[in-house]
Write a protein that binds this DNA or RNA. Structure first.
Lengths: 187, 187
DNA sequence: CGCCGAGTTGAACTGAATCAAGAAACGTGG
DNA sequence: CCACGTTTCTTGATTCAGTTCAACTCGGCG
């Protein structure tokens, strides 16, 4: 059993047949830092899983680089709206570190969903998980101060702060890089 | 076929058996303005569909009332994180108008998911739809001005602005009520 | 060495919050 | 149907968090 199937199995138990079906359509990639998993204004045609490494989802808004999401080893990675709707999206996904990445294409996943009830369930649980993460992020942004958002990120993902350039963390938190620098200066 | 099943069928075609299974566990309610669909700090044990009417999802943050989501006829309503995790959440859901509401319990839905692959698929598509809506809302909040957010709400949901008290619209947009009043004053 | 991008620090500016009065709308009871 | 009180909305003055612009520092690297 590989790390990807293993991660999937933690959402819902998978039968031997289900695991093999999934294993037959997923692919392992060793990719360098800077590699672009999803290009902007294209359809995100696969979902990814980071066995090791680090990725960033971002877009350009009025010429400035806005970090939308950060994912590390053990996380799933996708340009989520593009993947679900199969429509182009402005978001790009790039690796911030050399990474070991698993991929499954939308097309293959649809076939598996149709063929295996248990994989359809897995898909539902994966999307549910994504929605919960997004809601937490949304709540944070809706009525917390910049300092409070930084504190929370420190508390929940302390390692990201070491590994991701500070300017990217700043736009992830929705503040200017100078502001984050000042927040940090006050312990 | 009732309005609820009809709305569900638009996500994915449902067999006669699937429709009947769903019909056997959903309930229609005529409820007054102000009725509380989901109480705060409790588990949201059902998902709702508004055949007619209007609802508001909100919570208290440092003693102030924060509107999280607004739903009108044709929308699904749920305290989403509480429903998915079956954990209590601070959010309440109340009706802003007398409404006709359909409900299905989490328990019944789980049984249907397990028994009907097509309903599991429906569940996946429902959650996916919710995630897309949330991402759009998130993007809006992440890097748009208060005025731009109001403009967008005007463009996408013009009727809400007539039907929802302005203070609730303000916190939905993430601004103080005075600020929204000033934004509106400038045409 | 000296360049270059990332981070820091400072000062001025600005969008929005806050605090504080009024004005308008609403609904409830007489 | 009107009078009154409550809630909602508006308007003004002030404050504040965070942005912007600009200069400077630091560490890595050709």
């Amino acid at each position: 059993m590989n790390a990807f199937i293993d991660a999937l199995s933690r959402f819902t138990p998978l039968s031997e047949a289900g695991q093999q079906a999934m294993a037959s359509v997923c692919h392992r990639h060793e990719l360098p830092k800077g590699y672009t998993l999803v290009q902007s204004d294209t359809v995100c045609s696969s979902i990814y899983y980071l066995e090791t490494g680090l990725s960033r989802t971002f877009y350009y808004k009025d010429g400035r680089d806005v970090t939308d999401w950060l994912s590390a080893e053990g996380d799933f990675v996708v340009s989520i709206v593009s993947f679900l709707t199969q429509q182009p999206d402005r978001r790009l996904v790039q690796l911030l570190e050399p990474s070991v990445v698993w991929s499954v294409s939308y097309r293959d996943l649809e076939i598996l969903y149709a063929g295996y009830h248990e994989l359809e369930r897995l898909g539902r649980l994966l999307v549910s998980h994504g929605l919960i993460l997004m809601q937490q992020r949304f709540d944070d942004l809706h009525f917390e101060s910049a300092a409070a958002r930084y504190e929370r990120l420190m508390a929940t993902h302390p390692t990201l702060i070491q590994r991701v350039p500070q300017g990217m963390i700043a736009s992830y938190l929705g503040v200017a890089p100078e502001t984050l620098s000042r927040i940090r200066a006050q312990h």
